[in-house]
Simulated assay, not measured.
Amino acid sequence: MAKSRFDTGGGPSQRQLRVGELIRRTLSDVLLRGDIHDPELNRMSITVGEVRTSPDLKVATAFVLPLGGQGADEALSALRRNRAEIRRAVSKGLTLKFSPEIRFAIDETFDQMDETRRLLGQDRVQQDLDDPDADLDD
């Protein structure tokens, strides 16, 4: 059965993924070069982990985290305060019909990875990993 181009039941489309990655790279470059006229923002080293776009590509959510994870609230506040200037700077590097609205959120994937490592390091889990046949019925 052919998939409808309007089917949104699954994950993001290839176009959404491509545009999200393009915005992520462009936003990272803008922040790295210090193109935004805000000394507080330019003083921070911010990592852009992922950008997710809406199906119509008009809204992009950038998941960011300051280097070391310290000062996340200040970084988020500075990015939101300068979002119009950031949008203009990012749109210069894009060849899209519309310049997407950029929203910012804290990237929590690093915290999730730490929690996963912590869980996998527990003695009970290590027993299961060391002896994979322990739970199998004969």
Rank of each mutant, 00 (worst) to 15 (best):
M1H: 13
F6H: 07
G9D: 12
G11D: 04
P12K: 11
L17Q: 04
R18C: 00
G20C: 02
L22A: 09
R24W: 08
R25G: 14
S28E: 00
S28N: 00
D29T: 07
D29F: 00
V30F: 02
V30S: 00
L32C: 06
R33M: 15
H37R: 10
P39H: 00
E40C: 13
L41Y: 08
N42K: 02
R43V: 01
M44G: 00
M44L: 08
S54F: 03
S54V: 01
P55A: 06
D56P: 04
K58M: 14
K58E: 12
K58Q: 07
T61A: 01
T61G: 00
T61P: 03
F63A: 12
L65S: 04
P66Y: 13
L67N: 04
G69L: 03
G71H: 08
A72P: 06
L79P: 07
R80L: 00
R81I: 11
N82W: 10
A84K: 14
A84L: 12
E85A: 06
V90E: 07
S91D: 05
G93C: 00
T95I: 08
F98L: 14
S99A: 09
S99T: 15
P100Y: 10
E101C: 02
E101R: 09
I102V: 04
R103I: 09
R103A: 10
F104M: 03
A105C: 03
D107R: 01
D107W: 01
E108Y: 06
Q112S: 15
Q112L: 14
Q112W: 01
M113A: 11
T116M: 15
R117Q: 15
L119E: 02
L120R: 11
G121F: 03
Q122L: 15
Q127C: 13
Q127A: 14
D128Q: 12
D128Y: 08
D130F: 04
D131V: 02
D133R: 05
L136P: 01
